[in-house]
Design a protein around this nucleic acid. Structure first.
Length: 491
RNA sequence: CGGGCUGUGGCGCAGUUUGGUUAGCGCGCUGCGUUCGGGACGCAGAGGUCCCCGGUUCAAAUCCGGGCAGCCCGACCA
């Protein structure tokens, strides 16, 4: 496939100053330089730009529309889990950040603090939220009085700001968009069950069914746990370079915040008790995951559920019959319910346009040209496999629908096969280092322990999660000693 | 914050060592024409505080001093 490019642009490629071997479309190949490939895809698919302030990001329409669809999928699941959306302020009194010791310690170096407003120095500086545990719990303390007020299940979609040392578009930015859920429960078991419900029914389901990214679920070691949590549950996925990305986390907070903020309720017997809490979040980082999990040397590959455009109908060249047939197909597909775009920009070369649509990851392309029409056909091109097939004009809508239904499951299966190919079960630290550097090593936690974990850190590796050998989550009271650690490099 | 590298039209770069006319090249962009089935071609154009400040000099993208920013690798993290 890639040689088609060499024949189409004789000489010019070689004459380039940087003279690197380029894949079709001029992208750096993933195997040659994965980080560079990532940056080029983000830029050339018009997903995002760096903002003018270090670490900030402009999310462009193509990236933002993907986010909106992902957001809708997650939001729908959060609501199904019983939580309601609300909004809390961006600014937090600095004093709030000092109320929960471990949490404060975790976030202190990352805080942006506003010291001036209204043209003068503020008497009390305000913190720009790095996460909203503190403000939200301040209000929970007011709102929770009785066991009848529980569980209290709140979510918000917002931006948060953290000082980041090494920003990267989508993956780690100073300001990012996310949802953060915060809940209060009458007892530990209810809090735990809810944290797990969010992990599996919201995050895992959205990642796998909508984004088509298979994830491993488990909990974090003490070292990797969220500051202030007693247990952090996580979804971890493998990217196209074998590295891990944390896709979403759900924390059991125990009674840490309840005690710090005085969130108490009277139980049925009139006894005053502290609530048990959870918090959970997923961010625009997921867009980065989508790019890195599914992208290929031709650009993005989007599952239809998230694609701003599912089908593009391309007029191969300027021609009245072509335009008429393409317009008709577009209308027909739109009636069938697809998000569709007609590309009749015949003043731009056909090759250029197809390369652009591939770069943007549009799942299905329907090409209409004089040759197709002479046969009574259109050409259906499937992005993720880069395969073409002639389809009779009358059968296009059906064929497109069939193809669209295939894309998500096939992308997911491909990502899963890749992960499995790069995963090995091993028995020692040394083997975990060898395997984890290029993929995931599954190693008994008792073969590592906290010392082993420290040794991994020296090799730029970490324990992504702990889970049972069969991939299931640890049960209540189940000891880590019996679990498997998934070891890998991470973003 | 440590180590390495880099700042030159929108993007990628050359030029800096050895100071010297209007600072070049590829891509992209605009117009016209020919094209169009995998980033077409020709002609004509537009577009630059050479990161910033200061210094040396007849003369600075180039030398000196000081800043700032970005990238890669770590530590931190969704």
């Amino acid at each position: 496939m890639a040689d088609a490019d060499a024949s189409s642009s004789p000489g010019t490629r070689e004459a380039r100053a940087d003279a690197r071997p380029a894949a079709a479309g001029g992208l750096t190949s993933r195997t040659e330089d994965f980080p560079r490939w990532y940056q080029e895809v983000v830029a050339r698919a018009e997903m995002a730009d760096n903002g003018p302030v270090r670490g900030t990001m402009v999310i462009r329409p193509w990236g933002y529309e993907i986010w909106e669809r992902l957001q809708a999928a997650i939001d729908e699941r959060i609501k199904a889990a019983g939580a309601h959306n609300a909004y809390f302020p961006l600014f937090i009194p600095e004093a709030f950040m000092r109320l929960e010791a471990e949490h404060v310690e975790g976030f202190d170096p990352e805080l942006w603090v506003v010291t001036h407003g209204g043209g003068r120095q503020l008497e009390e500086p305000v913190v720009v939220r790095p996460t909203s545990e503190t403000v939200i719990n301040h209000f929970f303390a007011k709102w929770v009085q009785s066991h009848r007020d529980l569980p209290l299940l709140v979510n918000q979609w917002c931006n948060v700001v953290r000082w980041e040392l090494r920003p990267r578009l989508f993956l780690r930015t100073t300001e990012f968009l996310w949802q953060e859920g915060h809940t209060a429960h009458a007892d530990e078991a209810d809090a735990r069950a809810y944290a797990l419900k969010i992990l599996t029914d919201v995050y895992r389901d959205a990642m796998e069914q909508v984004a088509a990214v298979p994830v491993l679920v488990g909990h974090k070691t003490a070292r990797e746990r969220f500051a202030g949590a007693v247990r952090t549950w996580t979804c971890e996925a493998m990217m196209g370079d074998g590295k891990a990305l944390q896709m979403g986390t759900s924390h059991e907070l125990g009674q840490n915040f309840a005690k710090a903020f005085g969130i108490q309720y009277s139980d049925a017997t009139g006894t005053l008790r502290h609530v048990w809490q959870t918090s959970w979040g997923a961010s625009t980082r997921l867009i980065g995951a989508l790019i890195m999990a599914h992208g290929d040397d031709f650009g993005l590959r989007l599952p239809p559920a998230l694609a701003p455009i599912e089908v593009v109908v391309v007029c191969v060249r300027e021609d009245d019959d072509v335009l008429r047939a393409a317009t008709q197909l577009t209308d027909e597909l739109r009636r069938a319910g697809s998000r569709i775009q007609l590309d009749d920009r015949t003043d731009t070369g056909f090759g250029r346009r197809t390369v652009d649509w591939e770069l943007k990851g549009v799942p299905v392309r329907v090409e209409v040209g004089p040759r197709d029409l002479a046969q009574g056909n259109a050409t259906l091109v499937t992005r993720h496999t880069r395969t073409k097939e002639p389809v009779a004009l009358g059968a296009v809508a059906d064929a497109v629908g069939r193809t669209l239904r295939r894309v998500g499951p096939e992308l997911r299966a491909e990502a899963l096969a890749f992960r499995e190919e790069r995963t090995a079960s091993v028995g020692s630290l040394a083997e975990a280092v060898a395997t984890g550097t290029a993929g995931f090593a599954r190693v008994p936690w008792r073969a590592l322990g906290e010392e082993g974990e420290l040794a991994l850190a020296a090799e730029a590796l970490s324990v992504r999660c702990l889970q049972r050998d069969d991939g299931e989550l640890a049960g209540p009271g189940e000891r880590d000693d019996a679990l498997v650690a998934v070891v890998g490099r991470s973003y």
